[in-house]
Computed example of a mutant assay.
Amino acid sequence: MNARGYFDHAATTPLRPEALDELVRLASLVGNPSALHRSGQLARRALEEAREELAEAVGAHPTEVIFTSGGSEADSIAVLGGWAARRAERPGCLVSAVEHPAVVGAVKRGAGILPVTAEGVVDLDAADRLIDAGTGIVSVMAVGNETGTVQPAAAVAALAAGAGAWFHTDAVQALGHIPLDFATSGAHLMSLSAHKVGGPVGVGALLCRREVQPAPIGLGGGQERGLRSGTVPVALAASFARAASVAVAGQAAEAVRLAGLRDRVADLCLRLGGRLNSLPGGAPHIVNVTFDGVRADDLLFLLDQAGIRASVGSACRAGVHQPSEVLLAMGRTLDEATQSLRFSLGWTTTDDDVEALGGALAAGLQIATG
């Protein structure tokens, strides 16, 4: 893949060579890991090795790793399954207003909302008031997928624990970008996704503490600790584990590198008249910016024509022409929410990419405002 000019890493990032090697190595492995014969045992061994590798990378015990089809399924099991497991005695479910659609969608099923500030940070005073003895589960993401805001997840986890509620965090945009350790996070449940760290599409994981048992939300054989059914794709799981290991091993140095590039992107956006929606000191790989008077869809098209790939928000909203619900929750106007773009960086992003973005963005804005 030619990743030059690619600024949509928060949607999906190119496959790392180490992850590709694992994928190829195990793609021809024959045997269902649930089968009892020798081929099944070999597949099971490869699967458990992947589980152990991923667990080590994220500070979890291998028995806490539940492989899923991706971050959205992990979110759904955690929030809907966790809510269902506790609903009889604790009917409340609370999610922040800026969550991924896989979490904030629970609001349509009766979940309450934790409000955020104008900067997109969960309001801790409001959270303290809303989380009570009737709350079964609380969900606040670690890093905002649209703005890169680092949420006070540990503080909300402490509030949840004090009220006896389970705490879930969507850490899809955190893995590989900020330090992540499940054991010390205070979270009962944590969602991860492979293709955001250079692994393959189609696999993710839910980290679930051993004393926590959400209700399964699907039918089947219950292969993954009784919570997730279906034959686990061994090659995908191993590729995910390897990508996570590589990303975590280089996280500190890569965060410094990406933060430098992020700041350059932010500076050029400001010089071209943009207004930032991302907080200083946020995640090192996301810049969200509003260009007043310019439809984001129009600018996105012009950038695409110039070979620059960016987005207007969550990839799960791709192709749906509507304002960003995250920005609306932050108090932005309808116009502002339709005039904002997200530039996200990753392991393939270079200085030359940022240079190309500057030229293409200046030209695109000239056309869009002309």
Rank of each mutant, 00 (worst) to 15 (best):
A237Q: 08
R228V: 11
S229Q: 11
Q223Y: 15
P200Y: 06
P200I: 00
A215E: 14
S229T: 12
E224D: 11
V232A: 05
P200C: 11
E211M: 01
Q223H: 14
L236F: 09
Q223T: 04
A205K: 05
I217T: 11
V232N: 01
G218E: 13
G220A: 13
R228N: 08
V234W: 00
R210W: 09
A215D: 10
T231N: 07
C208E: 07
Q223S: 10
Q213H: 13
P214Q: 10
S229G: 15
E211R: 04
A237T: 01
A205S: 06
R225L: 02
L219P: 01
T231K: 15
G204N: 09
P216S: 06
G226I: 08
V212Q: 09
C208V: 02
V203Q: 05
E211Y: 03
P216N: 14
T231H: 03
P233G: 10
E211H: 13
G222K: 05
V203I: 15
I217E: 09
L227P: 11
R228E: 06
V203L: 01
Q213I: 09
L236G: 05
Q213W: 01
P214T: 13
G202S: 08
C208R: 08
G222E: 04
L236Q: 12
A238Y: 02
G218L: 10
P216M: 04
V234K: 00
G220L: 14
G204Y: 04
G226Q: 05
P216W: 11
S229W: 14
L206N: 11
G226V: 02
A238S: 12
P200V: 05
V201S: 14
V234N: 09
R209A: 05
Q223K: 09
V212I: 15
S239L: 13
P233W: 01
G222M: 07
A235P: 01
S229Y: 12
P233R: 12
R228T: 00
L206E: 00
V201N: 15
G202T: 04
P216H: 06
G222N: 05
G199E: 08
P233Y: 06
V234D: 08
G204V: 00
G221W: 11
R228Y: 09
Q213S: 15
L227H: 07
G218C: 05
V203H: 11
I217H: 12
V203R: 07
G202D: 06
G204L: 00
R228M: 01
Q213F: 08
R210F: 07
S229P: 12
P233S: 09
G220P: 06
Q223W: 12
G226W: 13
Q213N: 00
L236M: 14
R209M: 02
R228A: 12
G204A: 14
P200T: 15
G218W: 06
P200W: 00
A235C: 03
G222A: 02
L207S: 03
G221E: 07
A205C: 03
R225S: 15
V232I: 08
A205P: 10
R228P: 04
R210A: 14
V203W: 06
A235K: 01
G202W: 05
P233D: 03
V203P: 00
L207E: 02
G222Y: 07
P214S: 14
C208K: 11
G222L: 03
G230H: 15
G220Q: 03
V201H: 10
R210Q: 07
G199R: 01
L206Y: 10
G220Y: 11
V232F: 09
A237G: 04
P233M: 09
G226K: 00
G220V: 10
A237P: 05
I217Q: 13
R209V: 02
L206H: 04
